[in-house]
């Protein structure tokens, strides 16, 4: 009897092994190693790595660049998430209705999503280029002076935010569109018979029923805002003066340009902690307000 049980254990573990090896090698080990590394100094040929406790974290708190990119990242999240979600709902409601050329409109809204980020960045680079770019060409018609959109610390983050909204709103729209199509049309008719305006119906019925989607989209949007850096490589490389640098891009720079893996690990740990905290907060606070059917 016990032999059969141990045999089936071995069988079970063998089945689990391929997936387990990949998960451990590429997810759990790096995560644990990163955490460990953040408590060690960066080793050099002369000075080997040694345990330094929270020294890396203390350094981080004194690092002006860290505070700058953290602030940039918050502005980036605040700038992109609400607007792209609002736009996504608006577009979804619009293309869910009766509309000529409906599927073409839907596709048009979704197109930015299927483009690779690098291609998107290149397209927008043409828009933002001083003098010959689309923005400057248009503003020149109205007699406005040329502006170096990506070269000005005041406008660069706004430019990046605009690109992200353009790219993400269509993606989130798909989720809202799917959710809208599960809403029975009788709800709208029942509300209409009671004299509810479209706005009242949206506010009291449609939006609350879309809350599960909103929560899902919100968490995705938050993670994305800390995760997306591809466009920075093409557009600004974080400049000028770190005005458009985001946390992950800074981590990349620290790890692979400054070759300080210990400090990069510290920053990664902090980023992960922040994300975990936000996700827990979102579930904790929003879940009670979400009605799941």
């Amino acid at each position: 009897m016990s032999r059969r049980i141990s045999q089936s254990y071995i069988y079970g573990w063998l089945l689990l092994m391929p997936a387990a090896i990949f998960l451990i090698a590429f997810t759990y080990y790096p995560a644990v190693a990163t955490l460990a590394k953040s408590f060690f100094s960066q080793g050099t040929a002369l000075k080997p790595s040694e345990f330094v406790g929270f020294e890396n974290f203390a350094y981080m708190l004194d690092d002006d660049v860290f505070w700058k990119v953290a602030w940039n990242n918050i502005m980036y999240a605040v700038g992109t998430i609400p607007i792209s979600i609002a736009l996504a709902i608006l577009m979804a409601v619009w293309v869910n209705g009766k509309l000529p050329l409906r599927s073409i409109t839907r596709m048009a809204y979704f197109t930015p999503t299927i483009l690779p980020m690098i291609a998107v960045a290149n397209i927008w680079l043409f828009f933002y280029t001083p003098d010959i770019g689309l923005l400057d060409q248009v503003s020149a018609v109205f007699g406005l002076p040329s502006h170096n959109w990506l070269g000005d610390p005041d406008t660069v983050l706004g430019c990046i935010i605009a690109i992200t909204i353009w790219k993400e709103a269509g993606f989130f729209m798909i989720f809202y569109l799917a959710a809208l199509q599960t809403l029975p049309p009788e709800l709208e008719e029942a509300a209409r018979l009671e004299g509810a305006s479209r706005w009242y119906y949206f506010r009291r019925v449609m939006f609350p029923l879309l809350m599960p989607t909103t929560l899902f989209v919100l968490i995705n949007a938050v993670i994305n805002s800390f995760k997306l850096v591809d466009h920075l490589f093409i557009l600004t490389k974080g400049g000028p003066d770190n005005a458009s640098s985001l946390l992950l891009y800074y981590i990349y720079e620290v790890a692979f340009s400054f070759l300080d893996q210990a400090y990069a690990s510290t920053l990664t740990v902090v980023l992960l902690l922040m994300l975990a905290l936000i996700a827990v907060g979102q579930f904790y606070f929003l879940d009670k307000r979400v009605h799941y059917r």
């Binding site: 009788e186 009671e194 009291r204 029923l209």
Partner: peptide, 16 residues
């Protein structure tokens, strides 16, 4: 519809 002074019960009930 709202100005016709009538109520309706739907087959699916259409409860919110």
């Amino acid at each position: 519809a709202a100005d016709r002074k009538l109520s309706m019960v739907f087959q699916s009930y259409a409860l919110f």
